[in-house]
Design a binder for these strands. Structure first.
Length: 279
DNA sequence: CAAATCCCCTGCAGGC
DNA sequence: TGCCTGCAGGGGATTT
């Protein structure tokens, strides 16, 4: 389940294989919720473009092209964006119905490669943005979780009566945190996930921001978390799941005090915490 | 405006 | 063994 660290790992591995190369051919799957831009239109717009940059905001990736247009990508739950050889790409397209977008690339020296966007559940998204057009969904987004300041977080939480865990999942509050890292950061900050968001003091927001940065940076260094099928852009699984302290460990002992980890449901998301350390 | 609910999709675990 | 049900989850749309 790609959250900020998994998307950032994907970005870092993808950038050198994508930037500076020309898209010579585009193959798409059939129209679906995956395509915010119709696949035939998307293919026509991408063909011939040279990728100039690859950035990330929250869980979104944004590829920039030589004509000023851009491609917005979201990995959803099961999205995978990776490069491979042209031969491997042909094999994927022949046997796997979950590859929705394949780009054939050529570098200035003429070397060919491919970039595939595969997504089993199709919660992922691609959208083509004309030059100068900003995506509404990006405009609604709060500051990136790695850049938000304690003061900004405190202000964003001020009027919210929802549980802090739910607020962390709200991408308009801060961008990039999903279910895993919300639970992990709250554990590190010793804040119970059920605490009404507006009751956090500025000092507690300072602790929480520090915890968020710590857990997100550590996860990026570990290559992300691989729960079921996340793979980085080179196909390598992440290892941060081995460092999860509470997520996915209900009933197991808290690494700090040994109390069994509790599980509750908040905003239809399973939520894990230590009832003793976080109160 | 805030908050709750529903829905998109597929694979897999658990029950019988 | 095999079928069926339920669950997992990001996030946008809709409803309260």
């Amino acid at each position: 389940m790609p959250e900020l660290p998994e998307v950032e790992v994907t970005r870092r591995r993808l950038a050198p294989a994508w930037i500076g190369r020309r898209i010579t051919r585009v193959v798409t799957g059939p129209p679906s919720y995956f395509f915010l831009t119709r696949p035939d239109l998307l293919a026509a717009r991408l063909r011939g473009r040279v990728t100039t940059d690859l950035t990330r905001h929250g869980k979104y990736l944004l590829a920039a092209f030589d004509d000023g247009s851009r491609l917005l990508c979201h990995l959803g739950m099961t999205g995978q964006l990776f490069t491979c050889t042209s031969a491997e790409a042909r094999r994927w397209l022949g046997v796997d119905p979950h590859v929705h977008l394949a780009l054939a690339l050529r570098d200035p020296a003429g070397a060919r490669s491919s970039l595939l966007f595969r997504d089993v559940r199709k919660f992922g998204k691609v959208q083509w943005l004309a030059p100068g057009v900003t995506a509404e969904r990006l405009a609604k987004m709060g500051p990136d979780a790695l850049r938000i300041t304690p003061r900004a977080l405190h202000e964003a939480l001020a009027q919210r009566g929802i549980p802090i865990k739910t607020a962390l999942l709200d991408q308009s509050v801060l961008a990039g945190v999903g279910n895993i890292y919300a639970d992990e950061a709250l554990f590190l900050a010793a804040v119970p996930p059920t605490r009404p968001a507006r009751t956090l003091s500025l000092a507690e927001c300072e602790t929480l921001v520090r915890s968020l940065r710590r857990v997100l940076q550590a996860a990026i260094r570990a290559g992300g978390s691989t729960i079921s099928d996340f793979r980085g852009a080179d196909g390598a699984p992440g290892s941060y799941q081995d460092n999860h302290r509470v997520y996915g460990r209900p009933g197991l002992p808290c690494p700090t005090c040994g109390t069994p980890i509790a599980r509750v449901v908040l905003a239809q998301r399973s939520t894990h915490f230590c009832p003793r350390c976080q109160r």
